[in-house]
């Protein structure tokens, strides 16, 4: 029963993608904001600690003027805050009829295409910090080690849906080496 439903879904998606392909651009999906929140929080925590140390230590030992050094990590934090935002916005993926597209990076832009038939293994991982923020990443493995297809910071439910769908499509179009 379940497979029947999902196949229908699949067909709909396939049709939809085909229509969009005719229009040119595939349907991109961005990442949920959880990843950005997590990265920004980590940035603030680490650079905040650094700011405190850099500000307090010279300030207490050598005189209050030296505490101005704390501006350096603060500036870094502001810059990193923006960069993380840009980087997060650049991450996106698209499930097309026959392959998965992953696009990422601002300065160093990279776009990866993995045909479903070449996938050997789909992995869902979630570290302790990621779990705290309710995030999971999906990683695709092909026979080539150079294939670097990871989608980080997904909602766990979405990650599992993606894994199941990719596995199903991979089986249907399996080709191996």
């Amino acid at each position: 029963m379940e497979t029947g439903i999902s196949r229908q879904d699949m067909d709909q998606v396939t049709e939809g993608t085909a229509v969009r392909n005719a229009a040119g651009e595939p349907e991109w999906t961005g990442l949920p904001p959880g990843l950005l929140r997590m990265r920004r929080m980590l940035l603030v925590v680490w650079l905040g600690l650094l700011t405190l140390t850099v500000g307090l230590l010279p300030g207490l030992l050598a005189g209050p003027v030296w505490a101005a050094f704390a501006a350096l990590p603060l500036a870094l934090m502001a810059w990193g805050w923006r960069m993380l935002g840009r980087n997060w916005r650049s991450w996106r993926y698209a499930e097309r009829a026959d392959d998965l597209l992953i696009s990422r990076g601002v300065l160093w832009h990279e776009q990866t295409v993995v045909p479903y038939g070449r996938m050997q293994l789909v992995e869902v991982t979630s570290g302790p910090v990621e779990r705290r923020f309710g995030l999971a990443s999906v990683q695709l493995h092909t026979a080539a080690a150079a294939t670097d297809a990871t989608i980080p910071g997904l909602d766990p439910a979405e990650a599992e849906r993606l894994r199941d769908r990719l596995t199903e499509l991979g089986e249907a179009r399996s080709a191996g080496l």
């Binding site: 300065l107 160093w108 832009h109 990279e110 776009q111 045909p115 070449r118 080539a144 294939t147 297809a149």
Partner: peptide
Amino acid sequence: HAKVQSVRLTQGPWQR
């Protein structure tokens, strides 16, 4: 073509 596992496009800042 049959042996291709994945295709990638990369672009650095100078290339952009």
